[in-house]
Design a protein around this nucleic acid. Sequence first.
DNA 1: TTGAAAGCGCTAACAA
DNA 2: TTGTTAGCGCTTTCAA
Lengths: 349, 349
Amino acid sequence: MVTLAEVAQHAGVSASTVSYVLSGKRSISATTRQRVEQSIRELGYHPNAGARALAGKRSNIIALMVPLRTDMYVPVLMEIAIAVATTARTHGYDVLLLTGEEGPDAVRRVTGSGLADAMILMDVELEDERLPLLRGGGAPGRAKSGPGDDQPSVLIGLPADTTGLTCVDLDWSATGALCVEHLAGLGHRDIAVIGEAPAVYERHTGFAERTLDGLRSRARETGVRVLHRPCEGGYDALALTLARIFDERPGTTGFVVQNESAVEPLLALLRQQGRAVPEDVSVVAICPDQVAVQASVRLTSVAIPAQEMGRRAVEHLVAKLDGRGGDEVVLLAPELTVRASSGPAPAAP
Amino acid sequence: MVTLAEVAQHAGVSASTVSYVLSGKRSISATTRQRVEQSIRELGYHPNAGARALAGKRSNIIALMVPLRTDMYVPVLMEIAIAVATTARTHGYDVLLLTGEEGPDAVRRVTGSGLADAMILMDVELEDERLPLLRGGGAPGRAKSGPGDDQPSVLIGLPADTTGLTCVDLDWSATGALCVEHLAGLGHRDIAVIGEAPAVYERHTGFAERTLDGLRSRARETGVRVLHRPCEGGYDALALTLARIFDERPGTTGFVVQNESAVEPLLALLRQQGRAVPEDVSVVAICPDQVAVQASVRLTSVAIPAQEMGRRAVEHLVAKLDGRGGDEVVLLAPELTVRASSGPAPAAP
DNA sequence: TTGAAAGCGCTAACAA
DNA sequence: TTGTTAGCGCTTTCAA
């Protein structure tokens, strides 16, 4: 293994000079810098991560906690994770992958050991046990144990109380509103919402409820009726749900789907029932663009900006670590893309 | 931050005693051990990762390289990654998430900096540029730079030349054979294989070709005809592929699908054409169980054992790090589960 | 613009 | 069974 001392000797300078060439924390004459860089290349030197962390008090590692079982669609999780990893690298950080399994202990372990300088949590629940450990000094009624004791962190998703936390998420409420707006604008008056599995709502995962809120309040404003039905994925579950919807509201002409595994079954069943999309019914999905594009009917959809979420999370975290920027809730504006699954409401019979 | 020295003082012992209590590398009297453990708990001590890595020459971190763009189905990747992370934790290791983006440089960086003790590579290509850096001493024509210089590693997937490498993978060839065997056993004589996108084959990613080999050789043995067609995912592409298949081999009664995004389109199109599954045609999929179960027809399938692959990879790596076990190719035996999509071939007209 | 030297917190000889 | 101590490789004062 090549050490800094060896590089220094090879270049005929002191160790500190090599260190400063690497960190850029003091000015170095062009000639020494070149000699040092030359030696680094020749010897194939890589600074030792442990020694760096020990002496520099920063590991240059960001911990990313991904949930084991989740309400999110797996490809979205993966895309976020990858965006986190690549963005982190552009800022000189590596990413440590933690699973939700360890729970709050993982937070303590990572914080206490200095393994990571900061952490990103995905799929936070409304009342998450890990949050007390992460809240900044702003939270009332909590004594800070000391400066530097709390781990800078960013959540992807919104808990119930965001005091003293930084969060990045899609603006789900605006997303819901946008879907209704689109359908209402096309003249639809009876809209059905096919949602996530009931368990998702019961667990009070924020995004599902927020979407619904947005959906309903815009529905009120536009004078549209909304019928919401949670739904497990798959054909059988959807067949039942769909039957109940048309039973209760035969005049339904618009669908909003927020459940990737219900998308294809919905299209298939509508087809089977002889309801043409978008002539008879319109469908708007809340899903990654890839799903919208690959469906049997190209779907009008609001995209889930996975990459953007990962990127923004890292950027906020890096800003915190650099002493810039503090707690903040970042809501990404939803964007609706019109494709082939939505059109004017059919004239009333 | 609590240090080992503080714990030692609090417990009234020396630093080394605390260290040995933690590592268990020498015998400690029950009473001192208890006092130390008590102090550790009271003070909330966590050993500093950097210092440990520096002094102990091991970071207790395993690097996991996941591909950016991949031929694998994303949920499978994710499942493997999570299995790697959880298994690693049970062995006292954390996982560093690297993306394929950096390529061989990431290997050098991690090796050189001592950031990780070992690495796991997913989705290796047949001729992968990272492999030369990972091959053990066994490879002829390559001088080892020195002992301990090569990173212990495990690949998930098989490259063309496995000399000096440890690999874990599903036995794709046996998987292909198993599919044919099942269909042949049911009396099918004309089988079509709907494969991955052409790009996958062109890139010579091992698994696709191996599956085909297994498929074909067993077909020869059982006197079955096999027609292979690569296929992009989605409805349009599949519609074309399917038309060409029935055009060329009107008597086709069995399908093997190795492409998650072709599964549902295939079922929909067959239905649309009035071909009943499994009465008129049988379908066997190579996909995760979840996909097989959630499809509109519960699919007879060979599972992709994602968790098992992740777990085994870590276990082999840990064995290597502990000086046990060397290079080895581990092929997991495929298992076929019969569900509702396969049945006896229809009597010839 | 550069060098010398004191740690960072831990592990592992070496001693007792 | 326990303590003492010399580093591990780097960062960062302090001095020149």
